[in-house]
């Protein structure tokens, strides 16, 4: 191993790396491998039966479908919000900028009960939407609202630094060559922002898929209709169906791994096309 032969001036490498590996193993790797081992020991048939019942499949469709939609909505409004924060000056800009991180700081359970209070039939917005035939709380639409809340800062905060570092010269060149503002945005501004936008989308999606606290209050949790996959794991645990809960958790973990490597790839791409963005 070249690790041990390289000459190093700085001390502490074996201690720091050793501690990192032990702590990582104890807190993260061993607990996660427990899920896969437990799932593997129950046999393929019972595993497959647990992850493919109609109720579980309905929960995947709901969880992944609504998460995709929420992340897509966040891409649009997150880009607009980041654009406005970087390019324009208006009263309250700093406060808006600081509060964009609210979903990172506000506990999910608090967000959950607040959103439910807003959108319930007698709530601040619910009482106006109800007569129009729009029910938000206790339907999949409520889940969408919660997941938009949770995912918004991921898009804004990945896009914002890229927008800040854009060279004005390129846009000026495009304008002087006769491009209108929309063409300039579409052909000059958007391409370098795209990797960051996709990264933000993937981050928001990954967070939404696993989200629990903000969703369960507003979802109504009706099986086959508004029951998300993480809640199903908890339901199985409460019924002491450990193999069932573990099998579903294994499916969620596999998607987590895929998303993690996808996000890493996207971030590497974003860093290549926008060096210095994260340094």
């Amino acid at each position: 191993m070249g690790v041990w032969t390289a000459r190093r001036v700085l001390p502490g490498f074996p201690l720091a790396l050793g501690y990192t590996l032990i702590y990582l193993s104890l807190i993260v790797l061993i607990p996660i491998s427990a899920v896969f081992l437990k799932a593997a020991t129950q046999g393929w048939e019972s595993f497959w039966a647990a992850i493919s019942t109609p109720r579980v499949v309905a929960s995947y469709q709901l969880t992944y479908g609504v998460s995709l939609l929420a992340a897509a909505i966040n891409v649009v409004f997150g880009l607009i919000l980041a654009w406005v924060l970087v390019r324009y000056h208006f009263p309250g800009r700093r406060i808006v900028d600081a509060l964009v991180d609210l979903p990172f700081a506000l506990p999910t359970a608090v967000a959950g009960i607040a959103l439910t209070a807003i959108y319930a039939g007698n709530g601040w917005l619910g009482q106006w939407l109800q007569p129009l035939g729009i029910k938000v709380a206790f339907t999949p639409l409520g889940i969408l609202v919660a997941l938009i809340f949770i995912g918004l800062p991921f898009v804004v905060r990945t896009v914002q630094p890229v927008l800040e570092d854009l060279e004005t010269e390129l846009e000026e060149t495009a304008a002087s060559l006769g491009a209108d503002r929309w063409q300039t945005f579409y052909r000059v501004v958007l391409p370098p922002v795209l990797p960051a936008l996709l990264t933000g989308f993937a981050l928001a999606f990954a967070r939404a898929v696993g989200e629990y606290g903000s969703v369960i209050f507003i979802a109504g949790n009706v099986p086959m209709v508004s029951e998300i996959t993480p809640l199903l794991i908890i339901t199985k645990l409460e019924q002491f169906d450990y193999p069932g809960a573990t099998a579903i958790a294994a499916v969620m973990l596999v998607t987590s791994f895929i998303l993690l490597f996808l996000i890493n790839g996207l971030q590497a791409w974003a860093n290549r096309s926008h060096p210095g963005g994260t340094a």
Binding site: G210, Y212, P230, I233, L253, S256, F257, I263
Partner: peptide
């Protein structure tokens, strides 16, 4: 990794 794992899991 813990960022992309569901808290429930």
């Amino acid at each position: 990794l813990p960022f992309s794992v569901s808290p429930v899991v």
